[in-house]
Amino acid sequence: MTRYLLGRLLQSAITLFFIALITFTLMHEVPGGPFDALAGERVLSVEFVRAQEAYYGLSDPLPQQFARYMGNLLRGDLGLSFAQKGQKISDLILDKMNASLLLGAMSFTIVFGFGVPVGVVSAIRRNTIWDYLGLALSTSLAAVPAFVTAFIFLIVFAVWLGWFDVRLGKDFGDSLGSVRNGLLPALALGAPSMALVSRLTRGAMLEVLDQDYIRTARAKGLSRGGIYVRHALRNALIPVVTLTGPIFAGLVTGSIIIEEIFGIPGIGSAFVTSVFQRDYGMIMGTTLLYATIIMLMNLVVDLLYPLVDPRVRIA
């Protein structure tokens, strides 16, 4: 077990190293430097730009810069931002992470809070109008990415009904009252995953309901509700549980476009800005954070699997 865990962690570290290397190389290949971009607004003298680059170590050879970055990373230092003067990248990311995590958590709740019940009802009321309705809805939602759903929501709820402001996300994550503004973005972000979860739950539930032990429980005279919840759902949830990790990672790291559309000040929109500003530290920090979240969530699910399904053992 410890051996397995150590192996996986080592593998993740190697993957992370290569992701850092690729990002670092690509980002320095992007034309223009962090101070050229700033010069769009103010005219900076060549001497000043050179001095700044020397100060931040940008005039050193790239391999040396990369080695220095990785060394600092190991000590937990992500460096300084070029765009926000004197701000530490770690502080900026923590600050922006609030909105993204809150959005991801809301989406996650919607995905499983609605996806699982819809799947269960579809399975119990199989081949009725409810089943077909659920299936039609989930197939359509799964096909259309959050990007499109978001615009449909905006046109219907913000323009036609006027319930929300179009840039409704601008102070999302600041206060508890702003949570209401996150409903629409969270729903749009989670819709495809919700559809996936409901379809998976329905399939697993149907399979379990055909099992002998369900017939036995029924023959013993147990109530239908008790059978569905205590016997069927518990086993049907096994494949669903394995999806929680990747879905959470997908929601948190996949919100770039949703954040841009609704104007949510999260980590995704910060990444887009940092590419435009050539804010090297921010680009590296965000990419590594996202990759870590994805790998960590996959690891958590692999570790969780034997707990929910005793037949599976970690080799």
Partner: peptide, 8 residues
């Protein structure tokens, strides 16, 4: 798989 597609 670990590199977020959109970022890349």
């Amino acid at each position: 798989y670990a590199f977020p597609d959109l970022l890349f």
